[in-house]
Write a protein that binds this DNA or RNA. Structure first.
Lengths: 145, 145
DNA sequence: GTGTATGCAAACTGTTTGCATGGAC
DNA sequence: GTCCATGCAAACAGTTTGCATACAC
């Protein structure tokens, strides 16, 4: 594997053992994750890594665009390594397993849209939630049981 | 004025001086507001009202559906009294003054949507941000100046 | 060698909870 | 009269910061 592009993750910042670990763990997450899930996973791998380091690293990864905020759950931000890059897109989050995929923008920029017609829309946030193929299959199996 | 429907705001809960004040202040907010903006506004009106009371009241107002989470700014939830009611809808938030309006759902439920096709979408969150008519007018006036 | 990243712990912010008291119904 | 809502302060969770040390470059 090509290390998932971990090398440039911190931009011009220095690469340390901890930062490498944090980026690797983040990249290996199956889907969206909260910061403290990341903390746990990192510390499980190396208990000597402090939480502050994880927070600082994540802040850098976010400003570098290597990680993204893709939504939220129970008031906690959901992060994910998004392969799409800076192109305009949104995310689908699996409510069951947290898997995240990029999706095309489902928003109609209809100019005559009812109440919003008088607003000048500059940006929008969209997150779709549901079940990924695997979880959907399991759920329907449960239902039949 | 008809008190903006403050009477039923807390459902079957009891109405107190503080709760009445909190609901009135919330209803008088020009647009979306954060909890601590509400706290400040309430305490400005009656310094003896504790923050805990505001938080507890807001929790009730949210579960009653009298208030709604309409988005977020700097990691803080934006709340607003939404006149639309429980019908499916979304919000347009003015980045400048915080004014909020309801808008029709701009999401296309296209069944064949690229990557999300394999996901079973159960819900979505959409918030539009931009400038309300007034702020847009002011902004363009600034630009011309 | 220089300067950034780290670990630790303390500080800090926003929110919730326990408990005795006051007030709504 | 009963029970809910309040105020206060303490507890709490999540996050950030200060500082001395370790390490990348």
């Amino acid at each position: 594997m090509h290390e998932s592009g971990v090398e440039g993750a911190y931009g011009s910042g220095r690469m340390s053992r901890q930062r490498l670990l944090i980026a690797r763990v983040a990249a290996s997450m199956p889907g969206a994750f909260t910061i403290d899930a990341l903390c746990s996973a990192v510390r499980e791998n190396d208990g000597s890594t402090g939480v502050a380091t994880v927070y600082r690293a994540v802040a850098v990864l976010l400003t570098e665009g290597w990680l993204e905020r893709v939504g939220e759950r129970d008031g906690h931000a959901l992060l994910a390594r998004c392969p799409v890059g800076p192109r305009h897109h949104h995310h689908v989050v699996c409510d069951e397993c947290g898997r995240v995929e990029a999706t095309e923008c489902p928003v109609v920029e209809a100019p005559g849209h009812a109440t919003s017609a008088s607003f000048v829309i500059t940006r929008h946030e969209v997150t779709l939630y549901g079940l990924c193929p695997q979880c959907a299959a399991e759920a329907s199996a449960e239902g039949v049981r």
